[in-house]
Design a protein around this nucleic acid. Structure first.
Length: 264
DNA sequence: CGAGATGTTCGGCT
DNA sequence: AAGCCGAACATCTC
């Protein structure tokens, strides 16, 4: 599931273990989720460390532990975090479990498109520090969006919204929501968008991120009733504005839905 | 049974 | 030669 807001929701699941010590680690170290990291070292270093805090940015999470230990988590397509009782027995897809005295912090991911990174050091890892400013941050300006669209002039705008360096945290359903609100047809090439439409894209990207953070991220509740979201999942979806039957096509390699009447 | 799923990365082509 | 596109990754569900 995880886009921006779902990631923030799952991050908080591990708050159950805040200020508590890890007693034991269970990890499927050979899985591709852990590629590029030393999981033997993780299993050796984690016991005795305390979970001190966490943060979500875009689709990434970073958990901070005592002893200068850090855990980066990306949920991929099917990753989830949750807390279980301390006697929890990990199942086939529970690839990492941090046991504490009073609970077990579980990372599950059946498809294993996610990623877990282990880092040791006084400072957070470089890949974290280098993440671009959030869509909701003041540094995310209309000028930045415009410059990106001009650089990627031959790319469909739907595909552009999925580029994480430009729209961090935006995923497939949020991209469709943004385009519907901005009344832009997803197949439009970035280079053809006027300044006004680029501004609309900027504005709606912020609206959709803020709206999702105010609903989905809080308690996994649905976005507001008038969002495109609800219709986009239905095979028989209709435009909430004008009732037109939605169109479906693959754009930017992903299933894309839009209203053929109000998105041009 | 086949198709598709809310993500990223790589290799090949233009 | 940057940048675009499709395939691959691995598993489950409809």
């Amino acid at each position: 599931m995880p886009e921006l807001a779902e990631v923030e929701y799952y991050r908080k699941e591990w708050d159950a273990g805040l200020r508590r010590t890890i007693t034991r680690v269970a990890v499927h170290a050979e899985k591709r989720l852990f590629r590029g990291g030393d999981m033997t070292r993780l299993a050796a270093q984690m016991p005795g460390a305390k979970l001190l805090g966490s943060e979500a940015r875009a689709k990434q999470m970073l958990f901070r532990f005592s002893r200068d230990l850090w855990l980066g988590v990306h949920l991929g397509m099917t990753g989830k975090l949750r807390a279980e009782p301390p006697d929890f027995a990990p199942g086939r897809h529970d690839h990492l479990v941090l046991f504490q005295k009073s609970c077990a912090l579980v990372f599950t991911d059946p498809r294993m498109f996610g990623r877990v990174l282990f880092h040791e050091g006084r400072q957070p890892p470089a890949w974290w520090t280098a993440l671009p400013p959030a869509v909701t941050a003041p540094e995310f300006t209309p000028e930045l969006v415009r410059a990106f669209l001009q650089k990627r002039a031959r790319l469909a705008v739907k595909a552009a919204l999925l580029v994480q360096s430009a729209f961090p945290g935006v995923g497939n359903w949020m991209a469709d929501e943004i385009l519907w609100r901005a009344k832009i047809v997803p197949g439009a090439l970035c280079g053809t968008l006027t300044k006004a439409r680029a501004a609309a894209l900027w504005r709606e990207a912020r609206e959709v991120c803020n709206g999702a953070l105010a609903t989905v991220a809080v308690d996994f509740s649905d976005p507001p009733d008038d969002w495109f979201y609800h219709e986009r999942w239905s095979p028989d979806g209709h435009c909430p504005r004008d009732g037109s039957a939605l169109r479906t096509a693959t754009i930017g390699g992903r299933t894309t839905r839009w209203c053929p009447r109000c998105q041009r």
